[in-house]
């Protein structure tokens, strides 16, 4: 996204003052999280407030690892996220291609049904879905979180929009060469849809990593918890030990920050894509 010099030229110092004030408001919670995570418990509850810890207390991070199976939480979260991304990419792109390019009876009706799933709030299916998971014997398993998340109506919608925006010429010539739909999808459409696939991957990773309600409902055993649920659990056990809670929070959120900083352009383009298409 390029900054464009729109013909407005307000006084730049007003602009910067406003932006700095707002940026400060955005930044303070992060700064406080980091500072608190390095304080001793005594420093954290000192009155008046101590802003900078005298020495850096790494023990809070070690405490987190001792009180919770944090490495297991990482593994669970990564495994669930990987499965969701894989399923979403494959199933959504297949369906999106068919909805965008193949004519078959009932196509529009089926697509409207799909969109209706996007419109409804999650609470409308969460309770019976929980009962299904229980009947499967899937409570306290990773698949209870991962498998339903592999089927994503939003993914189908996003990629269909993307496929519709692509030129048809390459496909036409592939058809003349005798390629079937699966070959066209695999060899021509998927490579062209890379920006859409990247955007969908980012959304799926982010949503999966940060999700709280569903994993909390189906997995109550610490061995199967995700990071977000683990944080809720940590808060339940360490209620007021904020240095440890903040250390835990940072340990849970840094991978997304890293991902965002390295793929920033794709994050921004992906979100902009959903808003403008």
């Amino acid at each position: 996204m390029r900054a464009e010099n729109v013909s407005q030229k307000p006084k730049f110092w007003i602009l910067h003052t406003l932006l700095i004030v707002l940026a400060f408001f955005m930044l303070v919670p992060f700064a406080w999280m980091i500072l608190t995570s390095f304080k001793s418990l005594g420093e954290s509850v000192h009155v008046p407030v101590i802003v900078f810890p005298k020495s850096i207390h790494w023990d809070n991070y070690i405490d987190v690892l001792y009180t919770m199976p944090f490495l297991t939480f990482y593994f669970n979260t990564i495994a669930i996220t990987a499965l969701k991304v894989l399923g979403t990419l494959i199933f959504s792109s297949l369906a999106a291609y068919a909805f965008a390019r193949i004519e078959f009876p009932g196509r529009n009706v089926l697509f409207v049904i799909l969109i209706s799933v996007l419109m409804v709030p999650g609470q409308i299916y969460i309770l019976p879905l929980f009962l299904i998971m229980r009947d499967f014997g899937w409570l306290n398993t990773l698949q209870a979180v991962a498998v339903p998340g592999m089927f994503d109506a939003f993914g189908v919608f996003l990629l269909r929009q993307f496929f519709l925006s692509l030129m048809k010429e390459l496909e036409e010539s592939a058809k003349l060469d005798g390629c079937n739909h699966l070959q066209i999808y695999w060899r021509i459409m998927l490579p062209l849809a890379k920006p859409g696939l990247i955007a969908l991957t980012i959304f799926t990773v982010l949503a999966s990593w940060n999700e709280l309600l569903w994993p909390m409902i189906v997995n109550s055993s610490p061995a199967k918890m995700t990071l977000a649920v683990g944080l809720s659990w940590l808060q339940g056990r360490h209620g007021t030990n904020y240095p440890v809670l903040m250390a835990g929070s940072l340990m849970a959120l840094w991978p997304m920050v890293l991902l965002f900083l390295t793929l920033q352009k794709h994050f921004i383009e992906g979100i902009a894509m959903t808003g403008t298409k």
């Binding site: 909805f99 799933v117 299916y125 879905l129 299904i132 339903p148």
Partner: peptide, 21 residues
């Protein structure tokens, strides 16, 4: 082709979301 390509997504969404709805 159309039906088989939408089948995995539609069956999954149907079973995990629409039926519970």
């Amino acid at each position: 082709w159309g039906y088989s390509m939408i089948a995995p997504a539609m069956l999954g969404i149907g079973f995990f979301f629409i039926w519970p709805m």
